[in-house]
Design a protein around this nucleic acid. Structure first.
Lengths: 357, 357
DNA sequence: GCTATTCTGGAAAACGTATTCCGGTAGTGC
DNA sequence: GCACTACCGGAATACGTTTTCCAGAATAGC
């Protein structure tokens, strides 16, 4: 049954050496000065005799030399990586932004360091400090929890200090902070979604919102409200349910949703697709048919989720492009006023919200 | 229509300063020596008078001082970050592994740098060199393209050099390379899936495999074949279709799939869930009902995809745990033989593969 | 053949930090 | 008052680089 070599294979390997080779070792082996070795290895402005270059390269190869990046950057004082702070890696919303950031950064010959906040402001603060300490070229923050009070202002102060030291902070959201930003048009998008749903004949709404009233997701609630207001419809507090920004969050909210509220609701708008899908699963297991009994809309229009049944109505944001724009801002010259890029989102009507009557 | 403050807001901000404060600045402001400042700021073994500590801290605060991480680590020679190399951020398979890695690393007080290969071996090589240069504590590689020949052996050499310099390489997959590894049991899992499908009464199979015959995904094909072999069923070459490891890949393969092959097939096994979903969409748009006409199974059992309709049969791998194990290996003492951890996967039968007859 | 110029190599300084080593001060025991 | 021992601050050195500065050699120009 156990095929040979399939598992549990443990391979003998060479003992470990002690210490990485330095440029001094290379220089000694090549019989040149350390300065010459440095010049030969990184092609500085200065020329070095062809023969010496060859010897140095040969020695470096031989010793498996790799420059010590820390030493290089202390000396050069350079900023060569871009830091990306996101809330959650497993959330496709963030991973698509990350994709865009990484791709664009690579085009510029820069590397990206991705870190995760888990939506804790204290972690965000810690990470910003870390990247400041690492002299990152730019810090891109997507989906900051941007807690209230204390921590929020510490975060702001830290970012300002970072910019004062020559770094660039870029915010993905409409934060009103004095940093460059890529604006997602959450409010506008949600407004458009509300209007589209009204256009389909929906009149009675419920919203599954984020855990509290801060952050960019709340703009979606706000925009949705504005859209409804145009038809003189208001959202009562009981019609706004709150839960975590995840599949589980949506599931929990929909599971605990008051039966009479469901009864009265024609369409549920969840502020992101993951929550919408969680809600979908919960509704279904409660015997509520979607969209027959209740229609459902999400936000983000995240790719791999597009083929659920019923296909989910959502608002598409060009997330990769958002990431790319953030990089461009981060690499651009810092102006006296904050720069804001924005991106167009579009309502995608699908089977989960059929026209009513 | 345009609400004030919603968009296009550009904020005046302070002019940028020139240079980050160094520990020397702090020491000068506090009126102590640089050595004392250093000792006060990082709590070294040496004690420094309470009053001086206070003055130094005060000055640091005042100047918004943050230590220069590069300088610190050139001096200390420390290795304090873990590098994670994955193929694709947007693929939930990888992002769940990343989640596990990041979470576990944080428990150990380490930070993680995530980089993306895009499945190009040359990029992998470049990244390994980068991390070697940055003196990462460990390099965890998930889903290496592990190209053939030339580059593959360069990669191996680079990793060996990295370990010789004191780093730790951890491989997520069964690679047969002389590095510690977390084994996913791909072959075993696929074999079990095949057996389960046979148990349900399926007899005619097709496989949607990766673009070529290398890498861990091919073990899934191999294991599947082994499982079928137990019932004396063989997979003809025409029954193994190849495409990219993505939704699009699965979609393309299924779109181009020969109609008579579909006719003859009872169940399609795609080597990962994303491809399965792509195939699902394509089949559907060709008018092929799933599972009525053709059943479908995937692999990975990735969370947000679980509630497609029909629910997708798949093989669940505890991906977060895989990431965590990789970190443990990377932080453990290096032994004379490679260590291998393995993880249990389990077949999840769902509606996409109903029992036959 | 002599001077002026261009090359190119090496010694030394610098980057910002941590740490070793030295010396002075204060405290303790007589 | 003296010797001995903590204690703690500062000067100097080290980390592995890049870069400046100097000097010798080679080349060019006459």
């Amino acid at each position: 049954m156990t095929s040979p070599g399939e598992s549990g294979t443990s391979i003998q390997r060479p003992a470990k050496r002690r210490r990485a080779a330095t440029i001094v070792d290379v220089a000694r082996m090549a019989g040149v000065s350390q300065a010459t070795a440095s010049r030969a290895l990184n092609g500085s402005a200065r020329k070095v005799k062809q023969e010496n270059v060859a010897r140095v390269l040969e020695a470096a190869q031989q010793l498996n030399y790799v420059p010590n990046a820390s030493a290089q950057s202390t000396r050069r004082g350079d900023r060569s990586t871009i830091a990306l702070i996101i809330s959650e890696v497993t959330d496709p919303y963030f991973s698509w932004i990350a994709e865009g950031v990484i791709e664009r950064a690579e085009l510029e010959g820069m590397h990206v360091t991705v870190s995760v906040t888990k939506r804790e402001a204290s972690r965000e603060l810690e990470l910003i400090r870390l990247f400041r300490s690492q002299r990152s070229r730019a810090i891109i923050i997507a989906g900051s929890p941007r807690g209230s009070g204390e921590v929020a202002s510490e975060i702001r102060a830290e970012l300002e200090a970072y910019e004062a030291d020559g770094g660039r902070a870029v915010d993905i959201s409409e934060s009103g902070m004095p940093f460059d930003a890529v604006e997602l048009g959450n409010r506008r998008g949600a407004r458009a979604l509300a209007q589209s749903l009204l256009g389909l004949g929906y009149l009675r709404f419920a919203v599954i919102a984020g855990p509290d009233e801060r952050g960019a997701a709340e703009d979606r609630v706000l925009g949705f409200r504005e859209g409804l207001a145009a038809a003189d419809i208001e959202l009562a507090p009981s019609q706004v349910l709150r839960g975590a920004f995840s599949w589980e969050g949506g599931h929990t909210v929909a599971s605990e949703m008051n039966a009479s509220l469901i009864e009265q609701t024609e369409v549920v708008f969840a502020v992101n697709d993951m929550m919408a899908l969680g809600a979908l699963a919960a509704l279904r297991s409660r015997g509520v048919a979607v969209p027959a009994d209740v229609a459902l809309a999400g936000y983000d229009d995240v790719a791999p989720l597009r083929d659920t049944v019923p296909a989910l109505t959502s608002v598409r944001i060009p997330l990769k492009q958002v990431g790319a724009q953030a990089v461009e801002l981060g690499l651009s010259e810092r102006g006296a006023r904050t720069a804001v890029r924005s991106v167009e989102s579009s309502v995608q009507l699908r089977a989960s919200t059929p026209a009513r009557h």
